[in-house]
């Protein structure tokens, strides 16, 4: 019981004075941020505000980027990209199992595919999947590793509106079942409000707004109480009445 309780109180991700710059241009300017274990957080910001830069820093993918600061993140991190990034020369199941071995791997992979509704497509080639299916396979690939932290960079950006809503429901269900900490980068204010319990706005290299969304799930886009959050987020993003 004790280690579990400790896990809940210790933040999964901790950033202290995180700075990143490209060719002398500062993109992240001393960010301090704690993400509690098991929290579903969304990160909003203008295009070019540094959302991907932040996410890649947390994922440990920014090998050649200049910067400073302290950063702690869990051992098991999964990333979902905007493109599904399935290897075209491997069947769907083998893609899901990429980097996983052990006797149980095969069974886990099949389970993960079933969880995202791709049961029976194990032996399909990635280019036989629709965009939404491919993205679900990518979700399965990230879940099968039982991540403590799930990073997603506009994972639904390339999907149509209808598929996107389905994916929202699926992602939230998966989160409720597995409870990883989630950091979801998005440019879609509604997506952030419907999915996340906490929304951050990245502005001028800093966290400009840190908003906790205290509404029960599943949430509806039409929930009038969410409108208030939307107004505040849009204001933080610099979208005023006459822009809308």
């Amino acid at each position: 019981m004790a280690p579990h309780a400790e896990q809940l109180t210790r933040p999964a991700v901790q950033l202290r004075g995180l700075t990143r710059s490209f060719e002398g241009r500062t993109v992240l300017d001393g960010i301090d941020l704690d993400l509690p274990a098991g929290q579903f957080t969304a990160l909003l910001g203008h295009s070019g505000s540094g959302k991907s830069t932040l996410l890649r820093a947390v994922a440990g993918l920014d090998h050649e980027v200049a910067g400073s600061g302290r950063l702690t993140a869990p051992e098991r991190v999964s990333v979902v990209f905007q493109d599904s990034r399935l290897l075209p020369w491997q069947r769907v199941l083998d893609n899901v199992l990429l980097g996983l071995d052990g006797k149980e791997a095969d069974r886990k992979g099949r389970e993960a595919l079933a969880e995202v509704g791709l049961k029976g497509r194990e032996r399909a080639w990635p280019n036989e999947l629709s965009g939404g299916e491919a993205q679900r396979a990518a979700l399965a690939r990230s879940l099968v590793r039982e991540p403590e932290l799930l990073l997603a960079d506009e994972p639904f950006g390339a999907l149509d509106a209808l598929t996107r809503i389905r994916m929202h429901v699926l992602l939230r269900q998966l989160w409720e079942r597995h409870r990883p900490s989630v950091l979801l980068v998005t440019h879609d204010v509604d997506e952030a409000i419907v999915l996340a319990d906490r929304v951050l706005v990245l502005d001028q290299g800093r966290i400009g707004l840190d908003l906790t969304i205290d509404r029960p799930h599943p949430r509806s886009y039409r929930d009038p109480l969410l409108g208030e959050y939307r107004e505040r987020l849009l204001a933080a993003l610099g979208v005023t009445e006459d822009h809308k």
Binding site: A59, G60, L61, V77, S78, V79, F81, D83, R85, L87, Q90, L98, G99, L100, R141, R145
Partner: peptide, 21 residues
Amino acid sequence: HRFVELAEVQGLSRYAFIRRI
């Protein structure tokens, strides 16, 4: 380059990276 990134994220060993990607 995107697949290289994927391999890093999935924690592939160098050998597995060469063999599978």
